[in-house]
Design a protein around this nucleic acid. Structure first.
Lengths: 247, 247
DNA sequence: GTCTTTTTTGTCTGTCAGACGCAAATCTTC
DNA sequence: GAAGATTTGCGTCTGACAGACAAAAAAGAC
Protein backbone atom coordinates (compact mmCIF):
# COMPACT_ATOMS: atom_id res chain seq x y z
CA UNK A 1 0.00 0.00 0.00
CA UNK A 2 1.48 3.35 -0.95
CA UNK A 3 1.57 6.26 1.41
CA UNK A 4 -1.13 8.05 -0.53
CA UNK A 5 -3.34 4.98 -0.44
CA UNK A 6 -2.90 4.68 3.31
CA UNK A 7 -3.71 8.34 3.75
CA UNK A 8 -6.85 7.98 1.66
CA UNK A 9 -7.87 4.87 3.60
CA UNK A 10 -7.56 6.77 6.85
CA UNK A 11 -9.45 9.75 5.51
CA UNK A 12 -12.29 7.49 4.43
CA UNK A 13 -12.49 6.19 7.98
CA UNK A 14 -12.73 9.77 9.17
CA UNK A 15 -9.34 9.74 10.79
CA UNK A 16 -7.34 12.69 9.57
CA UNK A 17 -3.72 11.93 10.36
CA UNK A 18 -1.34 14.75 11.04
CA UNK A 19 1.87 15.34 9.12
CA UNK A 20 4.65 16.30 11.45
CA UNK A 21 7.74 18.39 11.28
CA UNK A 22 10.00 17.34 14.15
CA UNK A 23 12.41 19.69 15.83
CA UNK A 24 14.95 19.24 18.58
CA UNK A 25 15.38 21.93 21.24
CA UNK A 26 18.21 21.87 23.73
CA UNK A 27 18.03 23.06 27.32
CA UNK A 28 21.76 23.60 27.83
CA UNK A 29 22.74 24.31 31.42
CA UNK A 30 26.01 25.39 32.90
CA UNK A 31 27.17 26.41 36.34
CA UNK A 32 29.36 29.44 36.86
CA UNK A 33 30.99 28.40 40.12
CA UNK A 34 32.82 31.72 40.45
CA UNK A 35 29.61 33.75 40.63
CA UNK A 36 27.42 30.91 41.90
CA UNK A 37 25.01 31.24 39.03
CA UNK A 38 23.03 28.66 37.13
CA UNK A 39 23.05 29.53 33.44
CA UNK A 40 21.16 28.46 30.33
CA UNK A 41 22.19 29.02 26.74
CA UNK A 42 19.82 31.14 24.66
CA UNK A 43 19.95 32.21 21.03
CA UNK A 44 18.22 35.08 19.30
CA UNK A 45 15.82 33.92 16.62
CA UNK A 46 16.78 35.10 13.12
CA UNK A 47 13.54 34.24 11.38
CA UNK A 48 9.80 34.12 11.83
CA UNK A 49 8.03 33.14 13.90
CA UNK A 50 9.23 34.93 17.05
CA UNK A 51 11.85 36.86 15.04
CA UNK A 52 14.15 38.75 17.42
CA UNK A 53 13.07 36.85 20.51
CA UNK A 54 15.30 34.66 22.66
CA UNK A 55 14.83 30.92 22.39
CA UNK A 56 16.48 27.60 23.05
CA UNK A 57 18.92 26.48 20.40
CA UNK A 58 16.98 24.16 18.14
CA UNK A 59 16.88 22.62 14.74
CA UNK A 60 14.60 20.59 12.53
CA UNK A 61 15.59 16.95 12.19
CA UNK A 62 17.11 15.99 8.86
CA UNK A 63 16.62 12.89 6.79
CA UNK A 64 18.57 9.94 8.11
CA UNK A 65 19.51 11.81 11.29
CA UNK A 66 18.66 10.39 14.70
CA UNK A 67 17.06 12.64 17.30
CA UNK A 68 20.10 12.47 19.51
CA UNK A 69 22.43 13.31 16.65
CA UNK A 70 20.31 16.32 15.84
CA UNK A 71 20.68 17.41 19.46
CA UNK A 72 24.45 17.01 19.32
CA UNK A 73 24.60 18.83 16.01
CA UNK A 74 22.75 21.90 17.19
CA UNK A 75 24.83 21.96 20.35
CA UNK A 76 28.06 21.74 18.37
CA UNK A 77 26.90 24.60 16.16
CA UNK A 78 26.50 26.92 19.11
CA UNK A 79 29.21 25.96 21.53
CA UNK A 80 32.65 24.38 21.56
CA UNK A 81 33.02 22.11 24.54
CA UNK A 82 34.82 18.87 25.31
CA UNK A 83 32.94 17.61 28.36
CA UNK A 84 29.22 17.45 28.42
CA UNK A 85 26.26 15.38 29.46
CA UNK A 86 23.22 15.05 27.23
CA UNK A 87 19.98 13.12 27.43
CA UNK A 88 16.43 13.34 26.16
CA UNK A 89 14.14 15.51 28.26
CA UNK A 90 10.54 15.49 27.08
CA UNK A 91 8.48 15.72 23.92
CA UNK A 92 6.12 18.62 23.47
CA UNK A 93 3.66 18.09 20.73
CA UNK A 94 0.31 19.65 21.41
CA UNK A 95 -1.48 21.25 18.51
CA UNK A 96 -1.02 25.02 18.18
CA UNK A 97 2.31 25.10 19.99
CA UNK A 98 3.85 26.56 16.83
CA UNK A 99 2.21 29.48 15.00
CA UNK A 100 3.43 28.06 11.70
CA UNK A 101 0.70 25.44 12.02
CA UNK A 102 -1.89 28.15 11.51
CA UNK A 103 -0.07 29.60 8.48
CA UNK A 104 -0.24 26.33 6.73
CA UNK A 105 -3.61 25.18 5.55
CA UNK A 106 -2.18 21.76 4.80
CA UNK A 107 -2.27 21.14 8.55
CA UNK A 108 1.32 20.30 9.32
CA UNK A 109 2.15 19.89 13.04
CA UNK A 110 5.35 20.99 14.75
CA UNK A 111 6.66 18.73 17.46
CA UNK A 112 9.63 19.41 19.72
CA UNK A 113 11.75 16.67 21.22
CA UNK A 114 13.71 18.50 23.88
CA UNK A 115 17.11 17.47 25.13
CA UNK A 116 18.78 18.31 28.41
CA UNK A 117 22.48 19.12 28.45
CA UNK A 118 25.00 20.13 31.06
CA UNK A 119 28.33 21.55 29.95
CA UNK A 120 31.53 22.63 31.67
CA UNK A 121 31.27 26.40 31.94
CA UNK A 122 34.97 27.23 32.11
CA UNK A 123 35.84 25.58 28.80
CA UNK A 124 32.59 26.29 26.97
CA UNK A 125 33.24 28.60 24.08
CA UNK A 126 30.22 30.21 22.48
CA UNK A 127 30.21 30.31 18.69
CA UNK A 128 29.05 33.72 17.52
CA UNK A 129 28.56 33.65 13.78
CA UNK A 130 28.38 37.44 13.58
CA UNK A 131 24.69 37.41 12.77
CA UNK A 132 22.88 35.63 15.53
CA UNK A 133 22.86 36.60 19.18
CA UNK A 134 23.91 33.95 21.63
CA UNK A 135 24.35 34.27 25.39
CA UNK A 136 24.30 32.60 28.79
CA UNK A 137 21.31 33.74 30.82
CA UNK A 138 20.95 33.21 34.57
CA UNK A 139 18.05 30.85 35.06
CA UNK A 140 16.38 33.25 37.50
CA UNK A 141 16.51 36.17 35.06
CA UNK A 142 14.97 34.63 31.98
CA UNK A 143 13.26 36.80 29.38
CA UNK A 144 10.06 35.77 27.66
CA UNK A 145 11.12 32.99 25.31
CA UNK A 146 9.78 31.90 21.94
CA UNK A 147 7.30 29.03 21.62
CA UNK A 148 6.86 27.04 24.85
CA UNK A 149 10.54 27.24 25.65
CA UNK A 150 9.99 28.64 29.15
CA UNK A 151 8.04 25.49 29.95
CA UNK A 152 10.81 23.33 28.53
CA UNK A 153 13.32 25.06 30.79
CA UNK A 154 11.17 24.37 33.84
CA UNK A 155 11.24 20.69 32.95
CA UNK A 156 14.97 20.96 32.40
CA UNK A 157 15.60 22.58 35.77
CA UNK A 158 13.71 19.79 37.51
CA UNK A 159 15.72 17.19 35.65
CA UNK A 160 18.98 18.93 36.50
CA UNK A 161 18.19 18.86 40.20
CA UNK A 162 17.27 15.19 40.09
CA UNK A 163 20.32 14.29 38.05
CA UNK A 164 22.63 16.00 40.49
CA UNK A 165 21.06 14.18 43.40
CA UNK A 166 21.13 10.70 41.86
CA UNK A 167 23.85 10.58 39.26
CA UNK A 168 27.50 11.57 39.01
CA UNK A 169 26.73 14.13 36.35
CA UNK A 170 28.58 16.74 38.39
CA UNK A 171 31.88 15.12 37.52
CA UNK A 172 31.19 15.58 33.83
CA UNK A 173 31.21 19.32 34.25
CA UNK A 174 33.91 19.72 36.90
CA UNK A 175 37.56 19.80 35.84
CA UNK A 176 39.54 16.56 35.94
CA UNK A 177 40.71 17.41 39.45
CA UNK A 178 38.70 19.56 41.81
CA UNK A 179 38.42 20.48 45.46
CA UNK A 180 35.54 19.42 47.63
CA UNK A 181 34.60 23.08 47.89
CA UNK A 182 34.21 23.22 44.10
CA UNK A 183 31.90 20.23 44.30
CA UNK A 184 29.94 21.69 47.19
CA UNK A 185 29.50 25.03 45.45
CA UNK A 186 28.22 23.28 42.33
CA UNK A 187 25.63 21.47 44.41
CA UNK A 188 24.53 24.51 46.39
CA UNK A 189 24.22 26.62 43.25
CA UNK A 190 21.89 24.10 41.65
CA UNK A 191 20.02 22.73 44.68
CA UNK A 192 19.92 25.80 46.89
CA UNK A 193 21.88 26.70 49.99
CA UNK A 194 19.95 24.63 52.46
CA UNK A 195 20.29 21.00 51.53
CA UNK A 196 23.30 20.16 53.61
CA UNK A 197 26.13 21.47 55.71
CA UNK A 198 29.53 21.58 54.01
CA UNK A 199 31.01 19.44 56.73
CA UNK A 200 28.40 16.71 56.39
CA UNK A 201 28.34 16.92 52.60
CA UNK A 202 32.07 16.36 52.70
CA UNK A 203 32.06 13.37 54.99
CA UNK A 204 29.19 11.72 53.14
CA UNK A 205 30.82 12.06 49.73
CA UNK A 206 34.17 10.83 51.02
CA UNK A 207 32.65 7.84 52.76
CA UNK A 208 30.97 6.77 49.50
CA UNK A 209 34.49 6.01 48.37
CA UNK A 210 34.66 7.09 44.75
CA UNK A 211 36.69 10.27 45.27
CA UNK A 212 40.44 9.75 45.06
CA UNK A 213 42.68 12.22 46.87
CA UNK A 214 45.50 13.14 44.48
CA UNK A 215 47.59 14.45 47.36
CA UNK A 216 48.14 17.69 45.46
CA UNK A 217 47.11 20.84 47.29
CA UNK A 218 45.45 23.82 45.64
CA UNK A 219 45.98 27.20 47.24
CA UNK A 220 43.57 29.89 46.12
CA UNK A 221 44.03 33.11 48.05
CA UNK A 222 43.62 33.00 51.77
CA UNK A 223 42.84 29.88 53.73
CA UNK A 224 44.23 26.42 54.13
CA UNK A 225 45.05 24.81 50.78
CA UNK A 226 42.52 22.23 49.67
CA UNK A 227 43.23 18.72 48.46
CA UNK A 228 42.50 18.05 44.82
CA UNK A 229 40.28 15.03 44.21
CA UNK A 230 39.59 12.91 41.16
CA UNK A 231 36.38 11.01 40.33
CA UNK A 232 36.84 7.23 40.15
CA UNK A 233 34.16 5.94 37.77
CA UNK A 234 34.97 2.31 38.51
CA UNK A 235 34.51 2.73 42.24
CA UNK A 236 31.27 4.57 41.60
CA UNK A 237 29.71 1.86 39.43
CA UNK A 238 28.13 -0.20 42.24
CA UNK A 239 26.53 2.96 43.65
CA UNK A 240 24.59 3.62 40.48
CA UNK A 241 21.12 5.00 41.17
CA UNK A 242 21.74 5.37 44.86
CA UNK A 243 21.32 8.96 46.02
CA UNK A 244 24.55 10.91 46.42
CA UNK A 245 23.09 13.59 48.63
CA UNK A 246 19.79 14.19 50.35
CA UNK A 247 17.82 17.35 49.74
CA UNK B 1 7.25 32.06 3.25
CA UNK B 2 5.21 29.05 2.22
CA UNK B 3 6.03 25.55 3.30
CA UNK B 4 7.25 24.65 -0.16
CA UNK B 5 9.50 27.70 -0.27
CA UNK B 6 10.99 26.80 3.10
CA UNK B 7 11.56 23.26 1.95
CA UNK B 8 13.27 24.46 -1.20
CA UNK B 9 15.42 26.88 0.79
CA UNK B 10 16.57 24.07 3.04
CA UNK B 11 17.24 21.77 0.11
CA UNK B 12 19.38 24.45 -1.51
CA UNK B 13 21.45 24.64 1.66
CA UNK B 14 21.93 20.87 1.43
CA UNK B 15 19.75 20.18 4.45
CA UNK B 16 17.19 17.56 3.57
CA UNK B 17 14.51 17.78 6.24
CA UNK B 18 12.57 14.69 7.19
CA UNK B 19 8.80 14.43 7.06
CA UNK B 20 7.47 12.60 10.07
CA UNK B 21 4.58 10.41 10.89
CA UNK B 22 4.16 10.41 14.66
CA UNK B 23 2.75 7.48 16.57
CA UNK B 24 1.97 6.93 20.21
CA UNK B 25 2.72 3.57 21.83
CA UNK B 26 1.53 2.66 25.30
CA UNK B 27 3.39 0.51 27.79
CA UNK B 28 0.40 -0.46 29.93
CA UNK B 29 1.29 -2.25 33.15
CA UNK B 30 -0.88 -3.97 35.67
CA UNK B 31 -0.25 -6.03 38.78
CA UNK B 32 -2.11 -9.24 39.43
CA UNK B 33 -1.82 -9.34 43.20
CA UNK B 34 -3.49 -12.74 43.44
CA UNK B 35 -0.79 -14.48 41.40
CA UNK B 36 1.95 -11.96 42.14
CA UNK B 37 2.59 -11.26 38.50
CA UNK B 38 3.54 -8.08 36.70
CA UNK B 39 1.61 -7.85 33.45
CA UNK B 40 1.76 -5.79 30.28
CA UNK B 41 -0.96 -5.35 27.70
CA UNK B 42 -0.12 -6.59 24.21
CA UNK B 43 -2.14 -6.57 21.01
CA UNK B 44 -1.75 -8.66 17.90
CA UNK B 45 -0.93 -6.60 14.84
CA UNK B 46 -3.62 -6.78 12.15
CA UNK B 47 -1.63 -5.19 9.33
CA UNK B 48 1.82 -4.90 7.85
CA UNK B 49 4.47 -4.44 8.93
CA UNK B 50 4.85 -7.14 11.57
CA UNK B 51 1.46 -8.62 10.71
CA UNK B 52 0.53 -11.29 13.25
CA UNK B 53 3.16 -10.28 15.79
CA UNK B 54 2.49 -9.00 19.29
CA UNK B 55 3.05 -5.31 19.90
CA UNK B 56 2.24 -2.46 22.23
CA UNK B 57 -1.12 -0.82 21.62
CA UNK B 58 -0.38 2.20 19.47
CA UNK B 59 -1.89 4.67 17.09
CA UNK B 60 -0.87 7.42 14.73
CA UNK B 61 -1.61 10.91 15.98
CA UNK B 62 -4.51 12.65 14.30
CA UNK B 63 -4.88 16.23 13.26
CA UNK B 64 -5.68 18.52 16.18
CA UNK B 65 -5.02 15.77 18.70
CA UNK B 66 -2.45 16.19 21.45
CA UNK B 67 0.04 13.42 22.12
CA UNK B 68 -1.46 12.70 25.52
CA UNK B 69 -4.95 12.54 24.11
CA UNK B 70 -3.80 10.06 21.50
CA UNK B 71 -2.38 7.95 24.33
CA UNK B 72 -5.67 8.09 26.24
CA UNK B 73 -7.60 7.30 23.08
CA UNK B 74 -5.67 4.15 22.23
CA UNK B 75 -5.88 3.02 25.84
CA UNK B 76 -9.63 3.54 25.91
CA UNK B 77 -9.98 1.55 22.69
CA UNK B 78 -8.33 -1.48 24.25
CA UNK B 79 -9.39 -1.47 27.84
CA UNK B 80 -12.22 -0.24 30.05
CA UNK B 81 -10.85 1.03 33.32
CA UNK B 82 -11.76 3.74 35.77
CA UNK B 83 -8.51 4.23 37.69
CA UNK B 84 -5.24 4.65 35.93
CA UNK B 85 -2.02 6.56 35.89
CA UNK B 86 -0.49 7.75 32.63
CA UNK B 87 2.56 9.81 31.73
CA UNK B 88 4.95 10.26 28.86
CA UNK B 89 7.82 7.78 28.79
CA UNK B 90 10.33 8.41 26.03
CA UNK B 91 10.51 9.27 22.35
CA UNK B 92 12.08 6.81 19.97
CA UNK B 93 12.89 8.36 16.65
CA UNK B 94 15.99 6.91 15.07
CA UNK B 95 15.92 6.37 11.33
CA UNK B 96 15.05 2.82 10.21
CA UNK B 97 13.10 1.93 13.34
CA UNK B 98 10.07 1.33 11.12
CA UNK B 99 10.31 -0.79 7.95
CA UNK B 100 7.72 1.41 6.30
CA UNK B 101 10.44 4.04 5.97
CA UNK B 102 12.21 1.83 3.45
CA UNK B 103 9.01 1.17 1.45
CA UNK B 104 8.54 4.81 0.93
CA UNK B 105 10.93 6.47 -1.44
CA UNK B 106 9.65 9.87 -0.34
CA UNK B 107 11.63 9.39 2.88
CA UNK B 108 8.98 9.68 5.54
CA UNK B 109 10.16 8.91 9.09
CA UNK B 110 8.16 7.12 11.77
CA UNK B 111 8.57 8.39 15.28
CA UNK B 112 7.12 6.87 18.43
CA UNK B 113 6.25 8.88 21.50
CA UNK B 114 5.77 6.21 24.14
CA UNK B 115 3.53 6.56 27.16
CA UNK B 116 3.66 4.67 30.43
CA UNK B 117 0.43 3.58 32.09
CA UNK B 118 -0.51 1.65 35.18
CA UNK B 119 -4.05 0.36 35.55
CA UNK B 120 -6.04 -1.43 38.24
CA UNK B 121 -5.99 -5.09 37.27
CA UNK B 122 -9.15 -6.23 39.01
CA UNK B 123 -11.41 -3.76 37.23
CA UNK B 124 -9.58 -3.64 33.89
CA UNK B 125 -11.79 -5.06 31.19
CA UNK B 126 -10.11 -5.89 27.89
CA UNK B 127 -11.99 -4.90 24.79
CA UNK B 128 -11.87 -7.73 22.26
CA UNK B 129 -13.34 -6.55 18.99
CA UNK B 130 -13.57 -10.07 17.64
CA UNK B 131 -10.81 -9.51 15.14
CA UNK B 132 -7.72 -8.46 16.99
CA UNK B 133 -5.94 -10.44 19.67
CA UNK B 134 -5.38 -8.71 22.98
CA UNK B 135 -3.91 -10.13 26.17
CA UNK B 136 -2.05 -9.52 29.39
CA UNK B 137 1.47 -10.97 29.25
CA UNK B 138 3.69 -11.52 32.25
CA UNK B 139 6.64 -9.17 31.89
CA UNK B 140 9.09 -12.02 32.36
CA UNK B 141 7.53 -14.11 29.59
CA UNK B 142 7.44 -11.64 26.75
CA UNK B 143 7.43 -12.80 23.14
CA UNK B 144 9.43 -11.06 20.44
CA UNK B 145 7.54 -7.83 19.83
CA UNK B 146 7.09 -5.72 16.73
CA UNK B 147 9.30 -2.71 16.05
CA UNK B 148 11.46 -1.70 19.03
CA UNK B 149 8.68 -2.41 21.48
CA UNK B 150 10.80 -4.71 23.65
CA UNK B 151 13.13 -1.77 24.23
CA UNK B 152 10.20 0.48 25.09
CA UNK B 153 9.03 -2.03 27.69
CA UNK B 154 12.48 -2.08 29.30
CA UNK B 155 12.25 1.69 29.67
CA UNK B 156 8.75 1.30 31.02
CA UNK B 157 9.74 -1.27 33.62
CA UNK B 158 12.49 1.04 34.89
CA UNK B 159 10.01 3.89 35.12
CA UNK B 160 7.51 1.72 36.95
CA UNK B 161 10.02 0.78 39.61
CA UNK B 162 11.07 4.38 40.12
CA UNK B 163 7.49 5.58 40.23
CA UNK B 164 6.57 3.06 42.87
CA UNK B 165 9.53 4.06 44.98
CA UNK B 166 8.99 7.80 44.80
CA UNK B 167 5.35 8.47 44.09
CA UNK B 168 2.00 7.32 45.42
CA UNK B 169 1.12 5.72 42.11
CA UNK B 170 0.34 2.47 43.94
CA UNK B 171 -2.82 4.01 45.36
CA UNK B 172 -4.11 4.71 41.87
CA UNK B 173 -4.22 1.00 41.13
CA UNK B 174 -5.25 -0.34 44.53
CA UNK B 175 -8.93 -0.40 45.47
CA UNK B 176 -10.33 2.50 47.49
CA UNK B 177 -9.64 0.58 50.69
CA UNK B 178 -6.92 -2.01 50.98
CA UNK B 179 -4.93 -3.92 53.54
CA UNK B 180 -1.28 -3.32 54.21
CA UNK B 181 -0.62 -6.80 52.88
CA UNK B 182 -2.19 -5.81 49.56
CA UNK B 183 0.13 -2.83 49.44
CA UNK B 184 3.15 -4.91 50.38
CA UNK B 185 2.40 -7.55 47.77
CA UNK B 186 2.08 -4.88 45.11
CA UNK B 187 5.50 -3.56 46.02
CA UNK B 188 7.20 -6.93 46.19
CA UNK B 189 5.72 -8.00 42.87
CA UNK B 190 7.13 -4.95 41.13
CA UNK B 191 10.36 -4.37 43.05
CA UNK B 192 11.29 -7.94 43.92
CA UNK B 193 11.10 -9.84 47.17
CA UNK B 194 14.18 -8.46 48.79
CA UNK B 195 13.69 -4.75 49.28
CA UNK B 196 12.20 -4.80 52.73
CA UNK B 197 10.68 -6.90 55.46
CA UNK B 198 6.88 -6.77 55.77
CA UNK B 199 7.15 -5.62 59.35
CA UNK B 200 9.47 -2.73 58.54
CA UNK B 201 7.59 -1.82 55.38
CA UNK B 202 4.48 -1.62 57.50
CA UNK B 203 5.90 0.60 60.20
CA UNK B 204 7.59 2.92 57.73
CA UNK B 205 4.45 3.45 55.67
CA UNK B 206 2.30 3.98 58.77
CA UNK B 207 4.74 6.46 60.28
CA UNK B 208 4.64 8.55 57.10
CA UNK B 209 1.10 9.33 58.15
CA UNK B 210 -0.94 9.35 54.96
CA UNK B 211 -2.70 6.01 55.50
CA UNK B 212 -6.00 6.27 57.35
CA UNK B 213 -7.25 3.23 59.22
CA UNK B 214 -10.93 2.82 58.42
CA UNK B 215 -11.41 0.56 61.43
CA UNK B 216 -13.07 -2.02 59.22
CA UNK B 217 -11.55 -5.47 59.28
CA UNK B 218 -11.17 -7.71 56.26
CA UNK B 219 -11.11 -11.42 56.82
CA UNK B 220 -9.77 -13.47 53.93
CA UNK B 221 -9.45 -17.13 54.76
CA UNK B 222 -7.19 -18.08 57.60
CA UNK B 223 -5.36 -15.65 59.81
CA UNK B 224 -6.11 -12.59 61.82
CA UNK B 225 -8.34 -10.11 59.95
CA UNK B 226 -6.49 -7.12 58.52
CA UNK B 227 -7.41 -3.48 58.91
CA UNK B 228 -8.57 -1.73 55.77
CA UNK B 229 -6.72 1.50 55.06
CA UNK B 230 -7.45 4.47 52.84
CA UNK B 231 -4.94 6.76 51.10
CA UNK B 232 -5.12 10.39 52.28
CA UNK B 233 -3.90 12.52 49.37
CA UNK B 234 -3.91 15.70 51.45
CA UNK B 235 -1.69 14.25 54.13
CA UNK B 236 0.64 12.93 51.44
CA UNK B 237 1.11 16.28 49.69
CA UNK B 238 4.06 17.54 51.79
CA UNK B 239 5.88 14.24 51.21
CA UNK B 240 5.91 14.70 47.45
CA UNK B 241 9.15 13.48 45.87
CA UNK B 242 10.40 11.97 49.09
CA UNK B 243 11.05 8.26 48.78
CA UNK B 244 8.29 6.04 50.17
CA UNK B 245 10.44 2.93 50.45
CA UNK B 246 14.10 2.11 50.04
CA UNK B 247 15.22 -0.59 47.65
C1' DG C 1 53.30 37.86 65.53
C1' DT C 2 48.26 38.19 65.32
C1' DC C 3 44.05 37.99 62.87
C1' DT C 4 41.25 36.22 59.24
C1' DT C 5 39.97 32.81 56.03
C1' DT C 6 39.33 28.26 54.47
C1' DT C 7 39.98 23.33 54.91
C1' DT C 8 39.92 19.34 57.66
C1' DT C 9 38.67 16.41 61.34
C1' DG C 10 36.22 15.50 64.98
C1' DT C 11 31.95 14.77 68.59
C1' DC C 12 27.22 14.26 69.88
C1' DT C 13 22.36 13.28 69.38
C1' DG C 14 18.27 11.75 67.40
C1' DT C 15 16.32 9.08 63.82
C1' DC C 16 15.71 5.17 61.12
C1' DA C 17 16.47 0.83 58.38
C1' DG C 18 17.13 -3.89 58.99
C1' DA C 19 16.73 -8.01 61.65
C1' DC C 20 14.02 -10.43 64.62
C1' DG C 21 10.71 -12.09 68.22
C1' DC C 22 6.24 -12.41 70.03
C1' DA C 23 1.39 -11.45 70.93
C1' DA C 24 -3.33 -11.18 68.87
C1' DA C 25 -7.05 -12.84 66.11
C1' DT C 26 -8.95 -15.70 63.05
C1' DC C 27 -9.47 -20.37 60.48
C1' DT C 28 -8.58 -25.50 60.24
C1' DT C 29 -8.30 -29.92 61.89
C1' DC C 30 -8.86 -33.27 65.02
C1' DG D 1 -13.77 -27.35 72.09
C1' DA D 2 -8.82 -27.80 72.13
C1' DA D 3 -4.54 -27.66 69.56
C1' DG D 4 -2.16 -26.12 65.69
C1' DA D 5 -1.71 -23.26 61.55
C1' DT D 6 -1.91 -18.84 59.49
C1' DT D 7 -1.86 -14.09 59.07
C1' DT D 8 -1.76 -9.52 61.17
C1' DG D 9 -0.06 -6.27 64.47
C1' DC D 10 3.43 -4.40 67.50
C1' DG D 11 7.23 -4.50 69.97
C1' DT D 12 12.78 -4.51 70.81
C1' DC D 13 17.59 -4.09 69.64
C1' DT D 14 21.62 -2.66 67.03
C1' DG D 15 24.33 -0.39 63.76
C1' DA D 16 24.51 3.30 60.48
C1' DC D 17 23.93 7.82 59.41
C1' DA D 18 22.06 12.71 58.83
C1' DG D 19 22.17 17.03 60.96
C1' DA D 20 24.04 20.30 64.15
C1' DC D 21 28.03 21.95 65.95
C1' DA D 22 32.91 22.53 67.73
C1' DA D 23 37.65 22.86 67.10
C1' DA D 24 42.16 22.07 65.07
C1' DA D 25 45.24 22.81 60.94
C1' DA D 26 47.28 25.51 57.31
C1' DA D 27 47.59 29.04 54.65
C1' DG D 28 47.33 34.46 53.45
C1' DA D 29 46.50 39.42 55.20
C1' DC D 30 47.80 43.04 58.14
Amino acid sequence: MSRTQRKIAHLLKGEALADFRVGVDNAIFSVDTALNRLLVLLVMRQEEPFLGQWSLPGTLVRQGESLENAAYRILAEKIRVRNLYLEQLYTFGGPNRDPREADDNYGVRYLSVSYFALVRYAEAELIADGVSGIAWYPLDQLPQLAFDHNTILEYGHCRLKNKLEYSPVAFDVLPEVFTLSDLFQLYTTVLGENFSDYSNFRSRLLKLGFLRDTGIKASRGAGRPASLYRFDAEAFAPLKDKPLVFI
